[in-house]
């Protein structure tokens, strides 16, 4: 447990009367893909929000690389390498595809306002590097031919990929993906699974994946956390989760046999 990249300890989040998370403890190990599954309203997005800082837990603590994140604003957490994508796409539609990805590198920006005002060599060097990194990230997800299009003109599936490129370019240490396969067809979902695996293997990114598509989850996950009504129902490898009678009863339901076959 010592080198867990992310540790949530007894995290509680309340919205008025709704207890969205009640004492959730979990860990994400470095270099793994950890999936978080559970029915709608289980608190999966809320857990991601608590980690990225857009929601304040009422109690509990969140440790990233051994340091507490509690109380830090989202942009500081992003600065430390905690990046995320969104369940409902949050593409910058007022920019081109390339600019979107370049914007994703904000946390690595070093030059100041005066450098920008006067286009100093420092500005030029960094902009060139940012542009190269952005093209590289677009190449990684296969969108480089669309670099100059307005982001809003991309098809839905490509917008999902663009959001991936926007976080890849920021070289995250921990990447939280909130239902990245939502709205994708079967083929796109398979490619996405491949992409997530490559992000772990080739880029060394630790991934926490919230996803409903069980085939995808069972396929790519190293470990799985099951949430139900804001609490942890189970935790383990894909195989363990598929064989856990509680999970099967509460969540996996009739899909059980099919996915067991696929996973085993």
């Amino acid at each position: 447990m010592a080198d867990s990249l992310l540790q949530c300890r007894e995290v509680c989040v309340r919205f008025g009367g709704v207890q969205a998370l009640s004492s959730v403890s979990c860990t994400v190990e470095k270099g793994t893909i950890t999936s978080i599954i559970g029915p709608n309203g289980a608190g999966k997005t809320t857990l991601l929000n608590a980690v990225t800082g857009t929601v304040d837990p009422a109690s509990g603590s969140i440790l990233f690389a051994g340091e507490g994140l509690t109380g830090l604003p989202p942009h500081v957490r992003a600065g430390r390498g905690v990046l995320r994508t969104f369940q409902n796409l949050e593409i910058f539609t007022n920019m081109t595809v390339l600019e979107n990805v370049m914007a994703g590198r904000h946390r690595m920006g070093r030059y100041g306002v005066l450098d920008a005002f006067f286009r100093t060599p420092r500005y030029r060097r960094e902009e060139r590097a940012t542009r190269d990194a952005a093209m590289h990230a677009l190449g990684f997800v296969g969108l480089e031919s669309m670099a100059l299009l307005p982001a809003g003109e991309l098809a839905y599936g490509n917008q999902r990929l663009l959001e991936m490129a926007r976080v890849i370019v920021a070289a995250p240490d921990l990447l939280l993906l909130d239902e990245p396969a939502a709205g994708l067809n079967m083929q796109e979902t398979r490619q996405l699974g491949e992409l997530i695996r490559r992000m772990r293997d080739e880029l060394g990114i630790t991934v926490a994946l919230v996803e409903h598509d069980m085939e995808l989850v069972m396929d790519v996950s190293d470990r799985i956390l099951v949430l139900s009504f804001g609490a942890v129902l189970a935790e383990g490898t894909p195989l363990e989760i598929q064989r856990n009678p509680e999970v099967v009863a509460a969540y996996l339901g009739t899909d059980d046999e099919e996915t067991t076959d696929g996973g085993a």
């Binding site: 942009h75 969104f86 593409i91 914007a103 976080v167």
Partner: peptide, 14 residues
């Protein structure tokens, strides 16, 4: 520009 379209996404890229 990022702030203009999505404050949420803007803060999450830092």
């Amino acid at each position: 520009k990022a702030i203009h379209t999505s404050e949420k996404a803007a803060m999450c890229i830092g």
